[in-house]
Nucleic acid binder design. Sequence first.
DNA 1: CCTTGAATAATGTGATATCATTTTTAAAAA
DNA 2: TTTTTAAAAATGATATCACATTATTCAAGG
Lengths: 237, 237
Amino acid sequence: MDFCIPELEGDDQPTSQDQVYARLRNAIMVGAIPTGTSLTMRGLAEHLNLSPTPIREALRRLTSESAIVSKDNRRMLVPEMTSGRFEDLVSTRKVLECHAAVRALPYISDILIDELEAIDVEMDGAIPKSDYDLLTRLNQAFHRKLYSANIHQCALPLIESIWLQLGPFQREVISDLREFYIVDHHKSLLQALRNRDADALVDSIKKDIEDGVVAAGREAIAARSADQNKQRAAGEE
Amino acid sequence: MDFCIPELEGDDQPTSQDQVYARLRNAIMVGAIPTGTSLTMRGLAEHLNLSPTPIREALRRLTSESAIVSKDNRRMLVPEMTSGRFEDLVSTRKVLECHAAVRALPYISDILIDELEAIDVEMDGAIPKSDYDLLTRLNQAFHRKLYSANIHQCALPLIESIWLQLGPFQREVISDLREFYIVDHHKSLLQALRNRDADALVDSIKKDIEDGVVAAGREAIAARSADQNKQRAAGEE
DNA sequence: CCTTGAATAATGTGATATCATTTTTAAAAA
DNA sequence: TTTTTAAAAATGATATCACATTATTCAAGG
């Protein structure tokens, strides 16, 4: 337990199990929990001043959402990212989010577009401050609000599961790069919504995902495997 | 607790929490748990001869997979199906399964196609017996094996979540219809795999989902809402 | 007969205790 | 120095208990 779990300011969860879940979820999403370190129930319980019971339930939920994996030793940990898994997660994310956006389109109102634009303006204000956590939260709020316009929508939990799996790695990439540029295509996305143009909407979502930290992620993974090859070559000498 | 949770024959789960999870999951999938009845921890614990602790964890996992919902009274239940949710689940299922199949295609070997065909033959043998539970299990095994060919695949947990949400309703539909015909397009699907033809594969999957119990599901929902309208009209007299 | 309200029962939540398994530690052997 | 091995510590799983909240019951009042 050499890491620390950020507190959650606006935490109005009723039970402590929900609070632990929300905190751990956020911690994973912003990359505060290093991949590979085992999450022990007693350790987390002591760290959060709780009994192991609510911790255990929160961990089970996160396991069911593929945010953490349960090894055969019964140890739980945030899984390592691999090149193949990264590509699969990104492609699944694209398919799901495009689908959710298109299905939300008939439910989009002008008021909702204004609300989305307000979030985007807030993001523009946050970019100079380089507050990655805030930007991530706002970006997710933007997409969540868009997809939730469809009142029958059932894809959001699935999308959030993908976000959870990509989250820790993206943060790792960004701290590697030191300097980071959050590029979003929310402007063209909003225009597509105003025109009720499904094709343009899909195009914006794809670009938004592709040009986000995805490109950086690919580079980081390529660099990492180059490193590993170099180390392996050195070890074989 | 006026319902009964089918036992699971080949249950090699290590912990009792895993066993409870597997049993409840199967019970929901085959529609053994009526929608709307609340699942109490002590009730299930007594029914399964266990303490409430492993029950709680299994219920939490199923909640995170949208198989059961937690109301604000803290009561947990299998949610009712609505027309809108049904359509959204089906369309999401199509998108996800087509995507998973296409991404699995490059990993498909001739041996795997033979194994898939073996499952399909087993299904053909089970159809005359009208064993819906067995057919459901075999059909899911078929699709699971196909998508899992992609070793980096991350969509299967999401697909299974959709299956879980559609499961109880499809069973309800089938018991309503008394007679049921399980139509599958596995023959054309296998041919598409042999030809490594992505377009034909997508076509088969779409038809497989569409012509399954989906058509019946639509009719059942339409009939149900017609009933409700009639009842409402009668009540307003 | 229907509604209201208080007493009772049932339920969810969280803490603690116990046991089996796993991991770690450290000393002994190679 | 490295490997092996046994003791000790830590961990996960489950049961049980106590408490607060929620449902249910049933009698009194309208």
